[in-house]
Simulated scan of single mutants.
Amino acid sequence: MSWLLLLTACLLTCLGQVAQKYAVESWRGVDSSWADKLRSPWLWLALFALGSGLLVWLLVLQRLEVGIAYPMLSLNFVLITLIARFVFREPIDRQHWIGVALVIGGVALLGQQS
């Protein structure tokens, strides 16, 4: 159950980050007031996802040691990199991919401890 909660926290946090990106992209080049920006469904999705992710994260911390749980959130780095590359078509250089591979290796090592 702890691992499912951890995965849920990661996915909600990633969803929040992606929704933030979509929100600011929708504002680019548009002269709008803050009131208009506050009506963005992407902004509200981001706030909901990040808030929900925080609540799930609190449940994770009740069940797992922070020394194990927190490094697992580095999976967000991997997921966001994949989303940046394949959804937003952002270029990712070789060093970045090497970093992703190292993060995956570190998460695998930590996952074996618990």
Results as ranks from 00 to 15, higher is better:
32 S>H: 05
9 A>L: 06
71 P>N: 01
111 G>V: 06
30 V>T: 07
73 L>G: 00
16 G>N: 07
76 N>S: 04
74 S>I: 00
83 I>Y: 14
33 S>K: 00
4 L>Q: 09
67 G>S: 14
42 W>F: 15
29 G>F: 05
105 G>K: 07
94 R>K: 06
85 R>N: 05
108 A>M: 12
39 R>T: 08
62 Q>V: 01
20 Q>C: 08
81 T>W: 13
99 G>M: 09
48 F>W: 04
57 W>M: 12
87 V>G: 07
3 W>M: 07
15 L>R: 04
75 L>W: 07
101 A>H: 05
13 T>L: 10
15 L>M: 06
7 L>C: 02
71 P>Q: 04
80 I>K: 00
55 L>Y: 06
71 P>H: 03
7 L>T: 12
71 P>E: 01
64 L>A: 00
28 R>W: 11
15 L>V: 08
2 S>Q: 08
29 G>Y: 04
27 W>N: 01
38 L>R: 06
35 A>L: 10
56 V>A: 03
48 F>S: 00
7 L>V: 12
44 W>A: 05
6 L>N: 04
39 R>N: 10
2 S>F: 14
33 S>F: 05
52 S>I: 08
102 L>T: 02
33 S>Q: 03
106 G>Q: 07
61 L>M: 11
10 C>H: 03
67 G>K: 10
25 E>R: 11
15 L>D: 01
38 L>Y: 15
88 F>L: 07
82 L>W: 11
80 I>S: 02
57 W>N: 12
92 I>M: 15
33 S>R: 01
21 K>Q: 07
30 V>N: 07
105 G>I: 13
56 V>N: 09
21 K>N: 03
51 G>K: 06
80 I>M: 14
93 D>Q: 08
76 N>Q: 10
52 S>T: 13
44 W>G: 09
112 Q>N: 10
96 H>W: 04
113 Q>P: 06
104 I>M: 15
109 L>Y: 12
6 L>F: 05
32 S>W: 13
33 S>N: 01
68 I>R: 02
17 Q>W: 07
62 Q>Y: 01
10 C>T: 01
85 R>M: 10
67 G>V: 08
53 G>L: 03
16 G>Y: 13
35 A>D: 07
34 W>E: 02
24 V>L: 05
63 R>N: 03
105 G>S: 12
11 L>I: 05
3 W>N: 03
47 L>H: 02
29 G>H: 06
25 E>W: 11
93 D>R: 11
95 Q>L: 14
19 A>K: 11
95 Q>M: 15
19 A>I: 00
28 R>T: 08
9 A>C: 04
93 D>F: 07
113 Q>N: 11
78 V>G: 02
38 L>I: 15
28 R>Q: 14
34 W>V: 13
113 Q>E: 11
14 C>L: 15
86 F>T: 14
48 F>V: 04
14 C>I: 14
65 E>I: 00
107 V>L: 13
14 C>Q: 05
113 Q>K: 15
43 L>K: 08
5 L>A: 09
94 R>V: 15
98 I>H: 09
113 Q>T: 14
60 V>E: 05
100 V>I: 11
66 V>G: 00
42 W>M: 08
32 S>L: 12
70 Y>H: 02
21 K>E: 00
4 L>I: 15
79 L>Q: 08
64 L>I: 00
112 Q>L: 13
61 L>Q: 08
13 T>I: 11
77 F>N: 01
89 R>L: 12
114 S>V: 09
46 A>S: 15
68 I>D: 02
8 T>K: 09
13 T>Y: 12
54 L>M: 10
7 L>P: 00
9 A>G: 02
